[in-house]
């Protein structure tokens, strides 16, 4: 328990520091005179819609990635394993910006192209991570579970998933970071996220807006990481 808290503490503190840096007063101070920091209300609005978009994307990616990953490690789907790796390499070669840009004319402005980019970029690493974590479960443990007469479902829920938990949490951490990061790129497609003040700041040379968006996005990313680390520590406390 203590170790769990300790590993989550560093990202949590970093998140708090970055959140403080994104406050208009601090950011205005950091950016120097003549800058136009965003008001707290506007920043909060953007942060909430950023979280909503990234959270929705994370849930979809996590559910699909874990589900398909569990399915892919069942015996019946063994022949598909080589295909998954090829597909994962292919999907990782498509940068999220490019997916957002290509989906823009088809899906229109806003959230949908961002979600598609997130799905295209996040699904395969999550799937591959799940498969890797489940593969790392020792065959002896599985054989022992079979020997004491557990059903397949019981083996999955009581042996494989608990033993694979550290690897699965690691995979979900990657997925959460990708979600927050791609949601920021979604500002290019007109989605209202914390990427919006960054882009506006780059275009108008508004350094404090740029700094606020940057710090707040990074704060969200570290916050999500801290949360998953704490959950992971709690689950694997024995």
């Amino acid at each position: 328990m203590k170790a769990a808290c300790r590993s989550a503490l560093a990202p949590l503190l970093l998140a708090l520091a970055l959140a403080a840096a994104s406050h208009p007063a601090v950011a205005g101070l950091l950016a120097g005179g003549g800058s136009r920091p965003l008001a707290v209300d506007r920043l909060g609005e953007l942060a909430i819609s950023h979280l909503a978009l990234a959270g929705l994307g994370f849930l979809i990616v996590a559910a699909l990635g874990l589900g398909l990953g569990i399915a892919a490690t069942r015996e019946a789907f063994a022949p598909l394993r080589a295909g998954i790796d090829t597909l994962a390499a292919f999907a990782q070669s498509l940068p999220p910006v490019v997916v957002v840009a290509l989906a823009l004319p088809v899906l229109g402005f806003g959230g949908p192209p961002t979600l598609l980019a997130l799905l295209a970029y996040g699904l395969m690493p999550t799937l591959r991570g799940t498969v890797g974590a489940l593969d790392a479960v020792s065959p002896e443990a599985r054989a022992a579970a079979e020997a004491i007469g557990l059903t397949r479902r019981q083996i999955l829920t009581q042996v494989e998933l608990p033993l694979a938990a550290p690897g699965l949490i690691e995979t979900l951490r990657t997925a959460s970071i990708l979600s927050i990061s791609v949601a920021a790129v979604g500002a290019l497609a007109g989605a209202s996220t914390l990427g919006t003040p960054i882009l506006a700041g780059l275009q108008n040379q508004n350094v404090s807006g740029l700094l606020q968006g940057t710090a707040a996005t990074a704060a969200l990313a570290f916050l999500g990481d801290a949360m998953l680390l704490a959950i992971g520590g709690f689950l694997t406390r024995e």
Binding site: I180, V182, A184, G195, G213, A215, T217
Partner: peptide
């Protein structure tokens, strides 16, 4: 830790830092 920072944010932060140094 770098990986946790979104690319859009890191590029933005670098520009902010560079302009601060130049100022």
């Amino acid at each position: 830790g770098v990986q946790v920072v979104p690319a859009v944010a890191l590029l933005g932060g670098l520009v902010a830092a560079a302009s601060a140094v130049l100022a």
